[in-house]
Simulated assay, not measured.
Amino acid sequence: MNTSISSSASASAALPRIVVLATGGTIAGSSSDATSTAGYQAGVIGVGELLDAVPSLSSVAQIQSEQIASIDSKDMTLELWSTLAQRVNVLLATDAVDGIVITHGTDTLEETAYLLHLTVKSTKPVVLTAAMRPSTALSADGPLNLLNAVTVAASQAAHGQGVLVAFNNRIHSARDVVKTSTYAIDAFQSPEVGALGWVQDGRVDFHRSAMRPHTVASEFSVGANWPLVDIVSSYAGASRVPVDALVDAGVRGIVVAGTGNGSIHATVQQALVDAVAHGVAVVRASRVGSGHVMRNGAASDDALGFVAAGSLNPYKARVLLMLTLAMGTSGPTALQRAFDTY
């Protein structure tokens, strides 16, 4: 009997040590009606209850947990981004932590993931996961997503892959992944390039690796001060009012969600040219769900002083622009270099 207990304890001690950081979201959502998958309150279930719903986690890793926030991710703030990034770096710098899982709301998950992809300074796995159905719903997807995220974070194969998103049995790179559905449980996809791999029944398999610099190869870090960067859209009949208001407010950068290949309504484009003349950085992205924005393609970037976002959507382009401006980098040539690199 004593031998059995000792063996069990020894096996548990040999498991990877994973810290689960909870921020709220639908995965921690609750409704009084089990058939309700849209009308619920996000972020009300604590991390302890999330973990208790997946008892098999104890066979995958030694788990510690922290409640970083309890929010609906639509309300994510820059201050919370700083707190989360700094906490992740502190934890990963210790020998007592082998990897981190972050539970998050789906609405801004892709932005948080990309921010961490550029600012985490470790090769240890960092895996975000979430849910499309609240914890109280029939066939809630959160428990299995959480189990799979811990499985990925505990896998040696995930080391050096950058920040990952484990969702609906797929493993995505933080740079590529986007939310593509308002309701489906396979809401997250990586357009153009596809997922990095998959996780199922305890098995983790990577088909490719993230190619662009990230984590320890990234030059970026998170500080206390964020430059003001905002997003405007181009569409039929668009006016220059939003751009002028942002310039008057002292914005440091503007990302435009253009049509097609980042094309911009003539009225908005002239407003953005005027913004550049006032020292505002302007990045052309696209409101289309996939593809890339080519430099000097749908606009004469060299002549206008614009930057092309490449394959980053407007929301991730904003993250990269904020981090780049925060470093003191300025001017379209230097900014374009950052977008071409990351």
Rank of each mutant, 00 (worst) to 15 (best):
D201L: 14
D98K: 07
A174E: 15
T182I: 05
V44P: 01
I5M: 14
E219S: 07
K179E: 02
A130R: 08
S263F: 02
A13H: 10
A61W: 03
Q86I: 06
I231F: 10
V256D: 01
H278L: 09
A130K: 08
G279I: 12
D201W: 14
L272K: 08
T83V: 08
M132E: 09
A154P: 15
L246C: 14
Q64K: 07
M322W: 02
A96T: 13
V293N: 00
S330L: 04
R284F: 00
M211L: 15
V204P: 15
G260P: 07
N296Q: 01
A11W: 13
V177K: 10
L272Q: 07
A96I: 06
T37R: 03
P16D: 05
A42H: 03
T341G: 10
V193E: 02
V247T: 14
Q41C: 07
Y315I: 02
S4Q: 15
K179F: 05
S221I: 02
T119A: 07
V163Y: 08
F167R: 05
V165D: 10
H292S: 08
L50G: 04
Y114M: 11
E192Y: 08
A28K: 03
N169E: 12
S181P: 12
V216I: 11
A166I: 14
V88M: 06
G194K: 09
G331T: 12
Q86C: 04
H265L: 03
V90M: 03
R295V: 00
P191T: 12
